[in-house]
Design a protein around this nucleic acid. Structure first.
Length: 276
DNA sequence: CAAAATGTTGCTGA
DNA sequence: ATCAGCAACATTTT
């Protein structure tokens, strides 16, 4: 479900609902989602650990415990539901954290694609899965020049595919890549190696701005995703994603939908000219 | 019933 | 050795 803006919205919600709480027990109902160790040591390690705060790296959530980071990825449909009192788990709830104050946090994921793993705090950033991510898009050091450098590694791929790679442009996913390319007026099938520095500058500027505005709006509420606070209004601003057949907000041409790298891809055939 | 869905990864063949 | 392309993961919805 989530790209960077949705994950950031979840992070802010978790920061309010669970930071400062101490784990009294962890129950895992879908062992496959716990990576790197067996379920028993996973649950044991978290016993009596306190969540200092909840952080984010790209689309990963990091629960900052006393001794570990719990690195959590929601993939397509993962969700966290906090409850003030113990509740019966839903059939798609795969992990239940109970806290010493009697409250609970349920991890729910219909498609079971999400993952959790514990990392030592000292080495968390130097090891998979956090190691090879690009710096945060809002970091001033993530410049158009950095993006241009990254894109050299993907010069034979369509720009749409390249931008989905988290080591190229961290935080973008299928929705916001389409929005970014529309704002930058670049056709999604354009080979990354065929882009001018000016194209790349527009993509960089548009991508950062799209993510910034989406975070501000609380993410997009589409399909399964529901923001924890009930907000998530960015879908109202989407220019192309999910807008097949609707008029382009800039020129009025009907938005088209094609398949690029296996992903549904929306664009305006007038604003975004083909340039393979 | 086939296709698609906000993501990543591991394999295959060039 | 890279790297581009695609199946796989599992379930629900259209």
């Amino acid at each position: 479900m989530p790209e960077l803006p949705e994950v950031e919205t979840v992070r802010r919600s978790l920061e309010r609902s669970v930071s400062g709480k101490t784990v009294s027990s962890v129950k895992v109902y879908h062992p496959k989602m716990i990576r790197g160790m067996e379920v028993a040591p996973f649950a044991d390690a978290l016993h009596q650990e306190r969540i200092e705060r909840v952080e984010r790296r790209g689309k990963f959530l990091l629960f900052d415990f006393d001794r570990f980071y719990l690195v959590s990825h929601l993939r397509m449909e993962g969700k966290y539901f906090p409850y003030p009192q113990p509740v019966e788990r839903d059939k798609h709830t795969h992990v239940v954290f109970r806290f010493t104050d009697g409250s609970e946090l349920h991890y729910n994921d219909v498609r079971k694609f999400g993952t959790m793993e514990l990392r030592d705090k000292e080495t968390a950033m130097q090891t998979a899965p956090l190691a090879q991510l690009e710096r945060e898009p809002f970091d001033p050091e993530f410049t158009a020049e950095v993006l241009a450098e990254n894109l050299i590694r993907k010069k034979r791929s369509p720009i749409k595919t390249a931008l989905l790679d988290q080591s190229i442009f961290l935080g973008l996913g299928n929705i916001y890549v389409d929005e970014t390319l529309h704002a930058a007026r670049v056709h999604p099938l354009t080979k990354a190696g065929a882009l001018t520095l000016d194209d790349i500058s527009r993509i960089h500027q548009a991508g950062v701005e799209v993510l910034r505005q989406a975070v501000e709006a609380g993410g997009s509420t589409i399909r399964s995703y529901v923001s924890p606070s009930g907000k998530g209004e960015f879908q109202l601003q989407l220019a192309v994603y999910g807008q097949k057949g609707e008029p382009c907000p800039r020129c009025g041409t009907a938005i088209e939908k094609i398949k690029v790298g296996g992903r549904g891809t929306h664009f305006c055939p007038t604003c975004q000219q083909v340039a393979l």
